[in-house]
Design a protein around this nucleic acid. Structure first.
Length: 427
DNA sequence: TCTGGGGTCCTAGGACCC
DNA sequence: TCTGGGGTCCTAGGACCC
């Protein structure tokens, strides 16, 4: 369901992953903290204190050793079970402030504010902010404007200026020209590195200049999406609220390995593991995959090592969500592209070309009975893993030792999603 | 020693057809 | 040797997002 919108609020959690960690470990408050990517590789979330130390997004953590020693920088492995659960709590809380809500990402939501009179919007946003902090423990920022693109800008300004206390409403009378002329074009939603380079070359460096740019020129250089951005900067809403979450059109599962992998058998275990994870998500949305892509690659950061990467698309004979079947196809594909004599660093699979499980095309070879048994088995496996935690039941093809598994040496417990890891309060 | 993972949308161009 | 025009479908690649 889509809807034309009036004023809209963008609510964005501040330094979300770090804030989640702080809820359960107050010792991290007011300290420089970063959360690392899978494999404990590079920085994907930073506390304000860490940003103050000059640590950029994506910095490899091995370059921060000195800061850990001299400034007490604390680095944590990412804990997606925790962040996913905290996200759900934040969204629950927000939906009580406006039932017309679009969950845009794990840490962001757009809320329809058209029911709130102009003079009350700022106060309402402050109230919302206090409530999320009290109930969930996560600090958020709120930007209110007449379009999503402008709300994004308001939100960034609210975060940036401490005096605003996390809220900025630009949906009413404001000096929009002054505001936009001070906002760099590269920070506009939908303008990435490439486009901002092109725009800069043509003398467009701030949001006011982009707002005034020639429509057909923008259309040519930045496609229809760029044109929508320009219109939104003018206050014309082109991006409606998406109130219903949509099914995914593709599901990827891939990881860098904790250490290089040479043997085909080990690669097969890894790929079998990834494809079973993807299959769980596939079944959860009631889809069948018609295409499976498998890929592998050596470490591109070691240019002196022999390099090789490849991928293979497989059009499956029958669309399926059956884990053993998908594992068979993935291993077959992997075998086709595997070359001996390389140290592999990464592999993965992408499922796509989905159809609905409810109107399956019948298998011309009459294997319906077998498929039905498979469906029931998958249902049981998913239910057990949901109840007792991921990995309770696994396929033998995924291996037992899993030496290739990613490193996560600084991970916090799954405080909210695993009974064994609930926080303990000491009297 | 150590450098992420998971998505979406749009367009150009090729293959193919009449 | 010369060599049309219009349409559809598909895919690879590029741009963006968090």
């Amino acid at each position: 369901m889509r809807a034309i919108i009036g004023p809209v609020a963008l609510v964005d959690c501040n330094n979300f992953y770090v804030s989640c960690e702080r809820v359960f470990d107050p010792g991290l408050l007011r300290k420089p903290v970063v959360v690392l990517s899978n494999n404990d590789g590079c920085v994907v979330a930073r506390s304000n204190e860490a940003k103050g130390l000059g640590i950029g997004f994506g910095t490899p953590i091995f370059k921060c050793g000195e800061l850990v020693r001299s400034k007490g920088l604390k680095a944590l492995s990412s804990n997606y079970a925790l962040y996913g659960d905290m996200s759900r709590r934040v969204m629950d809380c927000l939906s009580r402030f406006s039932p017309r809500i679009e969950t845009y990402s794990i840490d962001e939501a757009f809320l329809d504010f058209s029911g709130i009179p102009l003079t009350e919007r700022t106060a309402y946003a402050h109230q919302l902010r206090r409530r999320v902090l009290k109930e969930v423990g996560i600090p958020v920022s709120v930007g209110v404007a007449t379009t999503k693109t402008l709300a994004k800008i308001a939100n960034k300004l609210a975060k940036r200026n401490a005096g605003l206390k996390g809220v900025l409403d630009i949906s009413g009378e404001v000096d929009m020209d002054a505001l936009l002329s001070a906002f760099p074009v590269s920070e506009i939603w939908g303008v990435g590195y490439r486009y901002s380079q092109t725009l800069n070359r043509h003398g467009i460096s701030n949001a006011l200049q982009l707002r005034g740019a020639d429509f057909s020129w923008v259309r040519k250089k930045m496609t229809i999406k760029g044109l929508r951005t320009v219109l939104e900067l003018r206050g014309i809403s082109c991006m409606p609220l998406e109130l219903m979450s949509k099914d995914k059109k593709a599901i990827t599962s891939s990881r860098s390995f904790g250490k290089p992998v040479v043997e085909l058998d080990e690669l097969k275990e890894a790929v079998a593991t990834y494809v079973s994870r993807a299959a769980v998500k596939l079944r959860a949305q009631g889809s069948l995959a018609g295409t499976l892509m498998v890929f592998l690659a050596t470490n591109r950061f070691k240019p002196d090592d022999p390099q090789y990467s490849n991928f293979l698309h497989l059009n499956l004979p029958t669309a399926t969500s059956d884990s053993p079947e998908l594992i068979r196809h993935a291993c077959f594909g992997l075998q086709r592209i595997y070359r001996e004599g390389f140290s592999y660093k990464q592999a993965g699979v992408i499922l796509s070309n989905f159809s609905s499980e409810r109107h399956t095309q019948l298998d011309i070879f009459g294997a319906e009975e077998k498929r039905e048994r498979g469906r029931k088995l998958m249902g049981v496996v998913d239910a057990v893993n949901l109840r007792f935690g991921r990995g309770t039941l696994e396929f033998a093809a995924c291996g037992l030792e899993q030496p290739w598994k990613t490193r996560q040496e600084m991970k916090s417990p799954a405080y909210t999603t695993n009974w064994d890891q609930l926080p303990v309060v000491r009297a």
